[in-house]
Amino acid sequence: MKKRVTIIDYGMGNILSVKNAIDYLGYKNQVTNDYKIIRNSELLILPGVGSFRDAMREIKKFEIDKAIKESVNKKGKILGICLGMQLLALSSVEDGNCKGIGLVPGKIVKLESIIKKKIPHIGFNSIKTDYFKGLFNGLEKNNFFYFVHSYFFLPQKTKQFKFSYCEYGKKFVSSYESSNICGTQFHPEKSQSNGLKLIKNFLK
C-alpha cells in the first residue's frame, strides 16, 4: 500500500498546487500544521513561497521544526520545495541573518550577490548532475525544471548530500538529497511531466 503523504502547511505557499500533484500521483495525503501528525509521518513535503523570516516565525509557532526533526530521526523522508528547500538549511541572509531548521549544512544568499543578470531567475532551466539514481532517476535527458527565486542555497562541505546544479550566469545548487532529506530550488509540482517523475521518485 502507498504511504500517506503529509503536506506541511504553515500558511505560506502554493499548497493546492503541491496537493494537486500528489493527488494526481495517486497518494493519499493530508495538509496540516499539526505537530503530532508531522512527527509521526514517514513522507513529508515542505512547500513554501515568500519570506524566509516570516516562514520561520510560523514554523516555530507550531513547532514544525521540532516535528520535522523527530520524523527525520525516525528515518522519515522530507522534500523541501523552493522556500521549503531553503528553510531546511542552517540560515539565510534574507532581512538580516535568520536561522533555519538546520538539517542541511549551508546558507541562503542573494542571487544578485553573484549574478549580473535579470533577477528573479524565472523560467525553465536545465539541471546538471551525475547522480541519476535518487530524485533524477529516469531524467537523464531534457531535464528542465521551473525556477522562480531571488535567493539560492550555498552548501558547506558535506559527504552526506548529493547536489544537482543549475546555471544562470553562474552555477548554483538546484537540489540536494541524502537518503531521507531532499530539497529542490525549482518547483517539481510546476515542471510538467519531469516534475511529476521527480516527485514520484521521492515518494517511492
Binding site: 493546492l16 498546487s17 494537486n20 500533484a21 494526481y24 521551473y146 522562480v148 518547483h187 509540482e189 510546476k190 515542471s191 510538467q192 511531466s193 516534475g195 511529476l196
Partner: peptide, 12 residues
C-alpha cells in the same frame, strides 16, 4: 481557478 488547475502541472 481551482477547476482549471486541478490536473495541470505548470506555473499558474
Amino acid at each position: 481557478l481551482k477547476k482549471i488547475t486541478k490536473k495541470i502541472f505548470i506555473p499558474i
